[in-house]
Simulated assay, not measured.
Amino acid sequence: MKANLQEDKHVHVSRAVLKRGNPMFFYAGLAAVLLVVCFPFIWMILASFKMQVQIMSMDKLFIFQPTLNNYRTVFSEYEFVKPIVNSAIVGVASTALSILLGLPAAYAISRYRQNILGLIILMVRFIPGITFLIPWYIIFSRLGLVDTHFALSLSHLLINLPFIIWIMIPYFDSLPRELEEAAIVDGSSVVGVFLRIILPLSIPGVVTASLLSFIFSWNNLVFSMALSGGNTQTLPLAIFNFISYAVIDWGALMAAAVLITIPILILSLLAQRFIIQGLTAGAVKG
């Protein structure tokens, strides 16, 4: 009996130790994951303030004399303002078009159970964007639209539109149908229900879809390589200007990468609450 009591005591002590140790292991694991994920970004920021020789030296990884010459070079020698403006125009235009077309399509698929149409749209999303590159180029070159913001914005619809539709379908599924039925009984039309009831309730999902769509457009390189030129060069394509046959300007390249990343980080932090709500919508029903 005494042996059993001692054994039970040891079991309780062991459980208490494990329970106290769990948070420590959790935070240690979290710190390790954050270090692996964030280190490339931290290194990129540090490298943007270093000279070319310092970037290649491991002795100057954290201790060095910072300089702003790389950022001056980005704007003075590489004219980086114009690609920023072009990427912003294309990103906003393609996102706005995708939202304008995608929200009604997602609502119709959700409410009228158009599963076949949804499957077709999903298949289009799975097709690599480079598959459409040559047809797009032939069409836009015949129409004289190559090197225009309009051509790039339309080409980005192939990526953004299916993505927005498939984000919003589960979100619309999670909204109770009783609200729509009550509004229709009160005399509202289907369009009125969509505009006055569904859209205001779907703000988190719309913000999430818009932000992710803008990020995809902001980072897209494939279509810019064929459809843009000197007038509409976007940021991913402008990055190639830092790479030459003989040498790579790593300092200016890292500074440009930081400038590309900062707007996305700011938007993500400002819309963090909506992103979490939008991505978890429809996960639990009932």
Results as ranks from 00 to 15, higher is better:
Y112G: 00
V13A: 11
P263M: 03
V284C: 11
V74C: 04
I139W: 11
L270D: 00
R177V: 10
P263N: 07
F150T: 14
S153F: 08
L270G: 03
W218H: 11
W136Q: 14
Y137N: 13
D59L: 09
M225I: 15
L101E: 06
L227A: 08
S48Q: 06
V146S: 12
F240Q: 15
L100D: 00
N22M: 12
P23R: 02
F39R: 04
I275N: 01
L179W: 08
V191Y: 10
F214G: 04
V81P: 00
R177P: 00
G205S: 03
I134G: 01
F242W: 11
I89K: 05
T232A: 01
I116E: 06
R273V: 04
A252K: 09
D147C: 03
G21V: 02
L175A: 07
M123F: 10
W166I: 13
M58N: 04
P170K: 12
H149E: 07
D173N: 14
P236F: 09
R142E: 15
F39H: 04
S48P: 03
S155E: 12
L195V: 10
I264A: 10
I138A: 11
A283M: 14
Q54G: 04
S174F: 09
I99L: 15
A88F: 13
L101R: 01
R142V: 08
N160Q: 12
I130C: 00
N219S: 12
A255W: 02
Q6H: 08
G144K: 10
L269V: 12
L34F: 14
L221Y: 15
I248D: 11
V17W: 05
L267S: 08
I248Y: 07
N69H: 05
D249K: 07
V146F: 04
K60C: 04
A283N: 10
P236A: 09
V207C: 14
V36S: 05
I197Y: 07
E7V: 07
S244H: 12
V146P: 09
M51W: 06
